[in-house]
Structures are given as C-alpha cells and as structure tokens.
Design a protein around this nucleic acid. Sequence first.
DNA 1: CACTTGATGGTATGTTTGTACCATAAAAGA
DNA 2: TCTTTTATGGTACAAACATACCATCAAGTG
Lengths: 208, 208
Amino acid sequence: MPKLVDHEERRAHIIDALLRAAASDGLHAVTMRSVAIGAGVSVRLVQYYFDTKEQLLLAAMERLAVRMGERVRRRVGERVGAAGSSTAPRPRDVVEAVLLEAVPTDEESRTFHLVYTEYAVLSVTDPALAGQRFLAAPDEMEAFLVAQLTAAREAGDTDPRMDARQEAVVLLAASAGLGLSVLLGQRTADDATAAVRYHLGRLFHPAR
Amino acid sequence: MPKLVDHEERRAHIIDALLRAAASDGLHAVTMRSVAIGAGVSVRLVQYYFDTKEQLLLAAMERLAVRMGERVRRRVGERVGAAGSSTAPRPRDVVEAVLLEAVPTDEESRTFHLVYTEYAVLSVTDPALAGQRFLAAPDEMEAFLVAQLTAAREAGDTDPRMDARQEAVVLLAASAGLGLSVLLGQRTADDATAAVRYHLGRLFHPAR
DNA sequence: CACTTGATGGTATGTTTGTACCATAAAAGA
DNA sequence: TCTTTTATGGTACAAACATACCATCAAGTG
C-alpha cells in the first residue's frame, strides 16, 4: 500500500474547505471543484473520500452539529471554572454564557453561525437534509435552561411566578433572533450582547 | 400591436410562480424553467419581462419587502379597528399583533416567511442582494415598538424602570427567533404564540 | 391596405455541474 | 518477486442551466 493516510484527518480537512467556501460564497454556491481547490486537492480525491456531493454535505452538517455542542459545553465549563472549583456557578452567569454563544463576535464564530444557519434553512426544503440533528442541540439547551431557571426561582433569584419553561423558550428564541440579526448586519455584536444582558437583568433579581 | 398586455400583472404572475417554487424546492433550486412552468408560460416570456435571472430575483425580493410592510400594517389596523373607532387601542394589543405577524400560522404565511428568510440568508453572501430593503422593515418596526412601549410605560402599564429601546430589541428578536423555529419544525405555531403572550403578560401590568 | 411594433414561441449555444471511467505509483503481503 | 490493495491524478460525458438569436402572429396606425 502507499502512504496509508489518516482518513478522518483528510475528511476533516476537506470539510473545513467546504465550510470556508460556504461562508464566503454561500452554501448554494459550493461545488465539488471549489471545495477541491479550497482544500488544495483534486476533485477526484473529494470523490474518493465522500463519494457523492450529498454525502459530503451531510458529513459537513454532522461536523457542524458536533461543534455546536462542544461550543456550548465549553462556554458553560468556562463559567463553572471561573467561579472557583468549590462554589457552584450562579445560574444567571451560566444562562448568560449559553445565550451569548449564539451571538457571533469574531470572524470564526461568524463563519460558524452563518453556515449553520444556511444549513438550517436549507434543511426546510431539501429532503436529504430534513429531520437531521438540528433539533437535538436546541432541545438539549432548552432542557438545560429550564433546569437553571427553576433552580434560580427556587433560590429566590427570580419572581416566584416565573414560568421556567416559557421563559426558556423566549430566551432561546431571543438569542437566536439576535444572533441572526448580527449575521444580517442589522445589529452589532455589542448591541446584541447588551440586549441579552439587559433582559437577564430584568429576569433575575440580585441574589439575596 | 397585439393583445396589449398589462405588464405589471404579468410580472406579478411570474413572481408568484417564483415564490411558490422557492417555497417548495428552495430558493437555490429556482430556475428560469421551473418558474416558467409554474407560471404556465414559456421561458422566453420570463426573459421578456425580466431580461435576466438576477433581475427576476431582485424583483421578487422587492415584492416580498412590500408585502411584509402591508402585512404588518394590516395587523395593526385590525387591532385598531377591533377596539372601536373612537377608543385608542391598548399598546399591549398592538405590540402583540406586530409580534405575532412573524409566526407562520397558515400555509400562506408559512410560504411567505420561508422565502423571506431564504432571501435574508442569501443576501449575506450574494453581493447582488446585499444592502437591500431588508433592513428598512425591521428598523421601522423597532421604532414603532419603542413608541408603543414608551406610551405604555408613561401610562403606568409597565415597570417604570423598563428600557423601551432594549425591550423592543428583545421583543423583535424573540418573535423572529420563534418564527424561525416554527419554520424549522422545532415548535408549533401555537407554542410560539403562547410564548409571545406569556412574555407580554410579564412585561405589561394589567392597565390600572 | 401596408407597416410598424408589442408579445410570444422555439431553438441554438457555451458554460458549469456531478459523476463515471481509466490510469498509475507505491507499499505491503505471498 | 509478483500480486493485490490504497491513494491519487486526469479526463470524458451527459445533464441542466442562463442567455442569445430567429421567427411569427396580431393589433393598431398611416
């Protein structure tokens, strides 16, 4: 046999080229050739590792979904660590961290969220993409928020009449909407961040 | 001359075919041929009325933007009328009407919002679509909401410490996010509506 | 009645796309 | 050493696309 290459690494390299292409020219403009050029390989190689274009798109989407989970978990982890290893983090800080993940700040997160959104919209009309793992991440986050909000309410940090489930739905929708408006260039990331903080300030009473 | 046709009507007819095609197969899959077939005319006719595909897409987008304005204004008008011709409508009802416009209920509004969203996302990467009237409608709505919220606060219907501008931003983002989640099939229209109502219930005190 | 002009159909063309096919170098196993 | 398998390149091909071109019919105008 020849070089005996690490397949997963090669696939990841090609997928990254696809994501770059999708972010700069749009997911609809992604072509086997443009991906190959972006990855610095021949079209034949892309075929070799992904057989068909549809499978390439599928694989890229799965990678995005995995990354989304990692991103959110990392954000939460940072907050947990920042509060010191012994103290439990305040629910408000954890919730803020999760919500702010949806706001694209640097170029890297902008790219990520743009392509993620392109996929989400595409999945509505494309049967091959439909019913994919797009729903898992949001559902997971919703359950997580409900738990945090419930804890906060029982600790007396919010209005006792607050409905944790409804509030989680609204928070998630607001952060998604704010992130989208930043992508569309309607708002700056700072404005979106300020809006999230304002809203959380109204939701949470000062502890004690 | 021949039949002497109403150009605007013909153009509207073709654009409607484009919107249907975009809603069912995705904006990226829209082709001169599919539009022509959908409109029941020859490809040559589409060329005749819109010259190039880019101009066709542009014209359809403009039509969407105009419709969006009409939709919102109609919603507000309904609320104003429902309260009786002499009484001023309660800000809460007006705000609710505006926000619920973003939630797709029947098939017609689902089609409309889906294509609108497809255009919005496309405009991020497509230079021909960039910097278009997408921003006008949201800005207008934001100003409108700020005015309503300010009036409500001054009438004592909300917490006096409420920041009308920040609150408007959050409300707009939440309704956009909820509408999107309905399009993506994550939530039902009823759930989204309930979330909007819940949030407004917390924002507005009962008048008096 | 001739003629111009608006509205339409059909077809040709050049380009781009995804994919299939053919070839080959190189390493490992017999 | 011969053969099989892995990784790669190049090219060919049919389909689809946007667009340009050529033709025709009908309705008003002179």
